[in-house]
């Protein structure tokens, strides 16, 4: 089914790459602002949030958490698949879950993870890793965290490891940009410019972290953690995280 022409090579897998990267893909990411909503209400008291604030916000997440944990999980899931290592797959799920220290983001990760897997399994060929993970979630021996589900879904659609990492970081970026747009912090051209200017950050974080061993995953965003905890306590909110 491939149309091959030396350098020009396109395939069904490229379309799958587009499908899973699309914000249209139903995983509920549009309900997350990752704490931006809190910042919006807090900062508005004295000073308006700016384009640069949104950029720094996303960059801090990508290089200090999503890169060194989520993206590293993606790489490790692919390594497990390559080595047929089912037990490490469950260990990754467990480790990521117990590293997600803020209640709100932890439950959001699991909800999106499980729904993503169910959606994928409804139309892909019987993928043994997806089935294995779904079965373990059902039995209670796995949690269903988002990056593990995401990597397994990408793998089930023949998407390569590094690309899967790019998609995850890209997806994170657009979900925050989407929240910023809906909160009226930036306008639609700004949103696309942030995404454009974030590309080198996304790329370097995938390159630096997709081959990181899972024993050396880390995260360090104390200020964002506190923002997220304060969001968790808000009385009325538009976003889940």
């Amino acid at each position: 089914m491939n149309i091959e022409n030396d350098d020009n090579f396109i395939s069904i897998d490229d379309i799958s790459f587009l499908q899973l990267s699309d914000s249209f893909f139903p995983t509920g990411l549009y309900t997350n602002s990752n704490g931006l909503e809190l910042l919006f209400y807090n900062k508005n008291k004295d000073k308006k949030l700016t384009y640069n604030d949104i950029f720094d916000f996303i960059r801090a997440y990508l290089s200090q958490q999503v890169g060194p944990t989520d993206c590293s999980v993606i790489g490790n899931v692919y390594n497990c698949i390559q080595k047929n290592n089912y037990s490490t797959l469950l260990e990754l799920d467990n480790m990521y879950y117990f590293m997600r220290l803020i209640e709100e983001t932890r439950s959001a990760s699991i909800r999106s993870g499980i729904q993503l897997l169910k959606c994928i399994s409804s139309f892909t060929d019987n993928n043994e890793y997806v089935n294995f993970y779904l079965k373990n979630i059902k039995d209670g021996s796995a949690k269903g965290v988002y990056p593990v589900s995401f990597a397994l879904s990408c793998n089930a659609m023949n998407i390569k490891k590094e690309r899967s990492g790019l998609m995850l970081l890209y997806g994170f970026t657009i979900s925050v940009v989407g929240a910023a747009l809906r909160l009226g912090i930036i306008q639609h051209y700004d949103g696309q410019r942030i995404i454009h200017e974030m590309k080198p950050v996304i790329l370097s974080n995938v390159i630096n972290n997709v081959n990181r061993s899972y024993s050396s995953m880390w995260q360090f965003i104390p200020q964002l953690d506190i923002i997220q905890i304060h969001h968790e306590q808000m009385d009325s909110k538009m976003f889940i995280t």
Partner: peptide, 14 residues
Amino acid sequence: GGCPHTAVREDPSI
């Protein structure tokens, strides 16, 4: 997330 219609229609996953 400010998308009440999406949450019950095209992406009801949550």
